[in-house]
Design a protein around this nucleic acid. Structure first.
Lengths: 341, 341
DNA sequence: CGGGGCCACGAAAACGGTTTCGTGTTAATA
DNA sequence: TATTAACACGAAACCGTTTTCGTGGCCCCG
């Protein structure tokens, strides 16, 4: 087992000082050609690589970024993560992921773990519980310590920091408008309980679209389900007791489940009833019929978030002069078989 | 912006030495009651937390584990990751993820980045390209440096290290056996090109089951598709030109796509043709009909892998005395609507 | 009153680098 | 020949901890 070689080893082996070795390996012109060549050759031979930890300690930069997300077995979040990871990698950063599991406490614990020097900045989407509690002290702390923070998707207005979101409200608006233009009269909304920021925005778009097109808003056509629902009874009853000819769902799981309910009742999709979901993940592409869906462009979102973060990390700004941006990405509607053209 | 406070700050503020502060905060009984209380109170007031990087440098332990997987937008891998993250977290470890993107070069680069002190050990699944090239020098290097390594799912026999897999061959065998028991006569196999270790194992199980039940092996019923295939033509033709009454697919995407082909041709599932897939991800649960699938228990696999790794990390064994285990988890068949009981 | 032992604390090395500054040697210049 | 500048390198501080070892002061005992 050949242990990692250090500057000290090289120095003693070659009978020069540590500083000489360090400079030689950086090709400093303080060191003579001969010495440099000798040292570099030796280092190469023994495959010397500087110790990241030592470097981090020295320049107070870890080249790690911390990502905290509510869930990892989740298409959208992994998509965002991929974008983050890709961009970070091109900039020489590594990514440490922590999963909050939708729990406030875990979110806090994870942040504290990472905030003690392990990372240069955070990218995160708030846990459901955090949004529900409306407690953001852990974020404030981090900001006060001067650690850059970028929020994406699940954001809050309470914290001043960089943010990346999609135009949820407009996207929902456009989706509903499309349904209206297709002549749909009874458009339902399947959403989550209301504390989730994004669902709320999407619901707003739904209402707005109906209003703007002089359509009656019928609360009876709005179903709010628990975020992680296993029990399908409620949604089944919903479809059994209402006349609906189009449905907007705030995620694709809701959509796929509801399509099934409709099909079970003998409705044809999209002839009798149209469906539009959010997320455009794997389910949308493989459902039958394939689901028309609002693409959130997670990978792009991740890239943008990483870019904003690394920019902040590398270009420190004097106290009080920082400015925060909220980048709004445009969602796009991917039309498939669950709606008519 | 309140910058992070260090031992040095506390020491100078309280006019004691750094060592005294360090000891006081560890409740060393070398320090008097009074002094300890004073220091602890001060530290608490200013929310002192030791710097992880400094600690890492000191005891050559980062409390980070590196995970390298081929893809992150992938149900099985994220499931495994969740298991890893959960277990690691309970042990106070953080997880750094790198994505190889099925590329050999990226895998190597990522390993090298992390191997220079950033992590205490690796958990990884090999990229497709690595398996194809059959080049594992980067793994050997890491092992030689004494960095613990655990391979999961996509493993190789060329490297001696801890491994976690499922009993792919047996699982496939059982699945096919079930189809045979259901009276199926023309059982097809949809798999990937053969360099992927797991696909190969599953194919072996398929052949073995047919053989053991005196059924003819018909290579015409075996379709090998590129791992990431977009073009569906080949698989469509396959179904158009063969008489098949059951299909085993090495992943759920293949299964869902093929179910669609069958349905398009007017076949009823499972009456006319049965389907069994591998992975048991989100698609299996939401497909119509719901797909009978071999569950790989990714989360469990992740937990086991993390446990093996952390065990190795924390209980260093003298040179040459190490032993390596291969843990085989039992896959289970989740029966749904795509097969008959 | 002197020596031993304990208490409470500090100095310093170490982890593995980077970087500033100082210095001995040589060669060029006055 | 004396002065000086350039060159090539080393010493040491520093990043923030932990930990070993030393030591000054006090008390106790002979």
């Amino acid at each position: 087992m050949k242990r990692k070689i250090t500057l000290k080893h090289i120095a003693s082996e070659l009978e020069v000082s540590i500083s000489t070795v360090s400079k030689a390996l950086k090709n400093s012109d303080e060191i003579s050609r001969d010495t440099k060549e000798k040292i570099q050759a030796f280092a190469k031979l023994y495959n010397y690589k500087p110790n990241n930890i030592a470097i981090s300690l020295k320049n107070k930069r870890t080249k790690n970024i911390g990502v905290i997300i509510p869930d990892i077995v989740h298409h959208f979040f992994t998509t965002v993560f991929r974008g983050i990871e890709k961009y970070a990698n091109t900039k020489g950063y590594n990514v440490i992921v922590c999963v909050s599991d939708e729990s406030f406490d875990k979110e806090v614990i994870n942040m504290e773990m990472l905030a003690n020097g392990s990372i240069d900045g955070f990218i995160m989407a708030l846990s459901a519980e955090t949004q529900l509690k409306n407690d953001f002290n852990h974020l404030k702390e981090v900001m006060e310590q001067g650690i850059p923070l970028v929020l994406f998707d699940r954001i809050t207005d309470e914290i001043s920091c960089d943010k990346v979101v999609i135009n949820d409200k407009e996207a929902a608006y456009m989706a509903v408008k499309k349904l209206i233009n297709n002549g749909r009269k009874k458009i339902a909304l399947i959403t989550t309980e209301s504390y989730l920021n994004v669902s709320e925005k999407r619901a707003q778009g739904y209402y707005q679209a109906l209003k703007d097109h002089q359509m009656e808003i019928d609360e009876n056509l709005v179903l709010r389900l628990p975020y992680q629902f296993e029990d399908e009874q409620e949604s089944e009853v919903f479809f059994a007791t209402r006349e609906i000819d189009a449905v907007l769902c705030v995620n694709e799981i809701f959509a796929v489940r509801c399509m099934r309910h409709a099909q079970k009742r003998g409705l044809r999709i999209p002839e009798d009833i149209s469906f539009i979901g959010f997320t455009d993940g794997i389910l949308s592409r493989f459902a039958s019929p394939r689901l028309t869906s609002v693409a959130q462009h997670g990978e792009k979102m991740g890239e943008v978030a990483a870019q904003m973060l690394i920019d902040k990390v590398e270009n420190e700004v004097e106290e009080g002069k920082e400015t925060f941006r909220t980048e709004v990405l445009k969602a796009t509607l991917i039309e498939r078989e669950s709606t008519v053209n």
